[in-house]
């Protein structure tokens, strides 16, 4: 797997306060699905905002496709790495869904026919092909979240960073958003999700990075991370109920994280 983003001893701080990132080193491979978890103020959003140059390290280096982010503008980096804000209303400002999604490719100076094509593809990918003329602010929170994702897809990035994509959605909205992210991953995008949602972590992520006080304190598969109760507690994270049931019932490691895997373990029969 080739490296798409690399952090080498990255430090970051706001003014003179205690640094928010304290020597983070990690590599993100093309095609990975990574969840970043951690408590409030642990540095997870700051870490994610380094991926597309919204923040640049005060010490250390972040590279995207081997290039130092300090030598590139956010506009240049956005062709490779797109960042989707937690609150879609922080990024939506056009009167129609289509105009909103066209904004990025227009700024890239693409010809009109190509803009039309990427916008239509992006809207189809999030299931909003029929809503091009709708006014974003009159749609549901779940739809606005999808419009925000379509806007970044229209930039055709390799890497998509999503900050808490399921917050404030009802269960159905949440499921739709997670399925969308799964499809994007399957179609070849590298996915980095900042989340508090441990079901998302258990069912979707391949790798979990746990942040605490500006440092990476754990980096492994969901099963490896959930097996570290002290680290999870310090990151203010509770493992999913399926895992906790396995633990409380004295099941042998590795304890399953999904319904299907748990059923298979207890009955010896899979679906």
């Amino acid at each position: 797997m080739s490296t798409v983003i690399a952090f080498e001893d990255v430090w970051y701080g706001y003014e003179t306060e205690t640094p928010v990132l304290k020597g983070v080193s990690l590599t993100i491979g093309r095609g990975e699905f990574i969840a970043i978890i951690g408590g409030n103020g642990s540095g997870k959003t700051t870490l994610a905002k380094h991926c597309n140059g919204l923040y640049k390290p005060i010490k250390g280096v972040v590279t995207v496709n081997g290039e130092d982010t300090r030598d590139r503008s956010v506009a240049q980096l956005s062709k490779t790495v797109a960042y989707c804000y937690q609150n879609p209303d922080h990024q939506i400002f056009h009167q129609t869904v289509k105009a909103e999604v066209s904004f990025g490719p227009k700024n890239r100076g693409l010809p009109a026919a190509e803009i039309e094509q990427v916008v239509n593809e992006a809207l189809a990918a999030v299931g909003l092909a029929h809503m091009g003329d709708a006014e974003p602010y009159f749609t549901s929170k779940g739809t606005r979240q999808k419009i925000a994702v379509a806007s970044i897809l229209a930039m055709r990035p390799d890497v998509i960073v999503l900050d808490e994509p399921t917050t404030g959605l009802d269960y159905r909205g949440m499921q739709e958003m997670l399925e969308l992210v799964r499809r994007l991953h399957e179609s070849g995008h590298t996915i980095i999700v900042i989340t508090h949602d441990m079901r998302l972590v258990a069912e979707y992520a391949q790798r979990v990075i746990v942040m605490q006080q500006g440092k990476v304190v754990c980096d492994g598969s969901p099963a490896q991370v959930f097996a570290e109760p002290q680290i999870l507690a310090s990151a203010q994270v509770v493992p999913p109920a399926i895992y906790r049931f396995g633990k409380a019932s004295g099941l042998a490691d590795p304890i399953p994280l999904t319904y299907a895997a748990m059923k298979k373990m207890l009955t010896g029969v899979g679906d």
Binding site: A241, I242, F245, A248, S249, K263, L266
Partner: peptide
Amino acid sequence: EVIRLYFMLREAGVLPEMPDVLPLDVEELS
């Protein structure tokens, strides 16, 4: 999840049909 898991395990014969008291947390299900 605890409740969905309970019904799944009942259906799979891991948990008995009776007594039918729905567990609401991990401790009750375990």
